[in-house]
Design a protein around this nucleic acid. Structure first.
Lengths: 121, 121, 121, 121
DNA sequence: GTGGTCTAGACCACG
DNA sequence: GTGGTCTAGACCACC
């Protein structure tokens, strides 16, 4: 967790959870850690995790059952992918295009840069 | 100007100015609008433009000549490109890679999506 | 049963039972399902049903006969109606009035809306 | 402000603000009090007002302009009325019908009860 | 001055 | 045990 990140800790946690759901680590219908558990696990205040979970509820990715905890919703993975795809086309693609243009990088170069980056990591 | 944007208004203005310089709209050595002029033009507090200009001065993209105004520095374009390239490799590339992986988009698809997007705009 | 409801599950169950008694489904003096039976039937923790039954006992709507189970009391229906009437005047009426005023619905319109709703259901 | 209300203080504040907007007290496009101001005015922690404002932003009733404060959105009143109307048909109407039926109150009686209540208040 | 976020600690209702 | 809410106080970036 990057504590000096303009993005906000609670959003970083939300992204991690989305990633875990998408990876199948937390299956749909399954219970995720309680607010207090997760707060202890990642060394953060319970209020912060509460904010994260609320955000995920608003996105329809998890749901609450009173007294039992939070559970992954059924269409969670599908919704995450759909949202990612939408954000990719709306936000990332235009920025990528303009940057490529400004840096005068053509398609072939981009592909080779990507390959290189994948090898490195 | 998006007044409800985590990025900060002064940074958005800075990006626009960089883009204009890179596009040759404001040539190197040329004078750019005064703080007050630009503030009025884009409907923003002069303090905000001041912060923008200071940021650009710090990056060596513009310079102040007392009583005359702000001028584009000689190596401005080169520096902008260098910075963009650096940011691209440090910030954008990793994110792009992870998103492509999550969305299961391979190189060929990416290229075709880019082409499609360029046609549309 | 709505597990994600600010109202509290045990209260929802209590209302359902009141409605059944009022409808004559469970007659006065008759035995109602045991805590465990009802818990299984509606997929809820027995503790929750316990709380529901205790609440109904407090309201004098049901009573416990040790070893035999819970029974509907003699004046149950009368008490339910009295409580409903009280709640209606204290809680529902003021809210209804303010909402009608805000939505600019007059008496005639309300009546026609009600008729329409009754037909639909 | 009722501090012992299951509804939550921040929601009560939200409703009050909605009512003020609907009454034209705070016109569309106008600035509403800052978080800190309102917090002091109603004797509540700024965090609580923050939660209220966030909720209103989510409903599209107000919007934030960085460093300036919160402003009533243009279609605010329309959205409030639409939401009220929707809630009325979805939540209030069914409950009202079932209560009227249980209490055996017909349309004429309802109208006279309403009139009586309006006189009293 | 404006929000936005986080921590710490507390209380409550509910299951 | 579970969340939900509120207070108090602090820090930050931004206008």
């Amino acid at each position: 967790m990057e504590f000096n990140n303009p993005k906000g800790i609670f959003l970083q946690i939300a992204e991690q959870i989305s990633a875990r759901i998408l990876a199948g680590e937390w299956a749909e219908g399954e219970r995720i850690p309680s607010i207090r558990e997760l707060a202890v696990e990642i060394g953060v205040n319970p209020n912060t995790v509460t904010k994260t979970y609320q955000s995920l509820v608003d996105q329809g990715l998890i749901e609450n059952r009173r007294g039992l905890g939070y559970f992954v919703t059924e269409q969670s993975s599908a919704r995450i992918i759909e949202r990612l795809r939408h954000e990719f086309h709306r936000d990332d693609l235009p920025k990528l295009c303009s940057k490529l243009e400004m840096l005068k990088i053509n398609n072939d170069e981009l592909v080779s840069i990507l390959e290189e980056h994948r090898k490195a990591s």
